[in-house]
Amino acid sequence: NITAAIYDEIQQEMKRAKVSQALFAKVAANKSQGWLCELLRWKENPSPENRTLWENLCTIRRFLNLPQHERDVIY
């Protein structure tokens, strides 16, 4: 289940792992930094009809659900 909290989790994970938006986007969703920036802007007004947005957030959720040491190896 995806909630608005995922946006904060993304920010916290980037700080914790000391990774850039570009690197996080690449490893978590195989996307660009610009894409992640755009995604983070949706926090203010996520559209329930935007299926692509929710699919991408689900992809990021799966990455964030990995154990921390696995995420660190991927970075």
Rank of each mutant, 00 (worst) to 15 (best):
T3C: 02
A4G: 14
Y7C: 07
E9W: 14
E9R: 12
E9Q: 14
I10H: 01
I10K: 01
I10E: 00
Q11D: 04
Q12N: 06
Q12W: 09
E13R: 00
M14K: 05
M14T: 11
K15D: 03
K15Y: 10
K15T: 12
A17C: 06
K18R: 09
K18G: 14
V19G: 04
V19P: 07
S20M: 08
Q21V: 13
Q21R: 11
A22V: 05
K26Q: 10
A28I: 03
A29S: 09
N30H: 12
K31M: 06
S32L: 07
S32V: 10
S32Q: 12
S32F: 05
Q33W: 06
W35H: 04
W35E: 09
W35I: 04
L36H: 00
L36W: 01
L36M: 15
C37R: 12
C37P: 02
E38L: 04
E38D: 07
L39R: 11
L39S: 09
L40N: 01
L40S: 04
L40A: 05
R41I: 10
R41C: 06
K43G: 03
K43L: 10
E44C: 12
E44I: 10
E44F: 15
N45D: 04
S47V: 13
S47G: 12
P48M: 14
P48T: 11
P48I: 14
P48H: 10
E49A: 09
E49R: 12
N50W: 07
N50K: 15
R51P: 11
T52E: 06
T52N: 02
T52W: 09
W54T: 06
W54P: 01
W54I: 05
E55D: 12
E55Q: 10
L57F: 02
L57P: 00
L57S: 04
C58L: 14
T59P: 14
T59F: 11
I60N: 00
I60M: 10
I60H: 00
R61N: 09
R61Q: 05
R62M: 06
R62P: 01
F63R: 00
L64C: 04
L64T: 01
N65M: 05
L66R: 12
Q68W: 07
H69Q: 04
H69S: 10
E70P: 01
E70T: 02
E70F: 04
R71K: 15
R71Q: 03
D72M: 11
D72V: 05
D72I: 10
V73S: 14
V73D: 09
Y75Q: 01
Y75A: 00
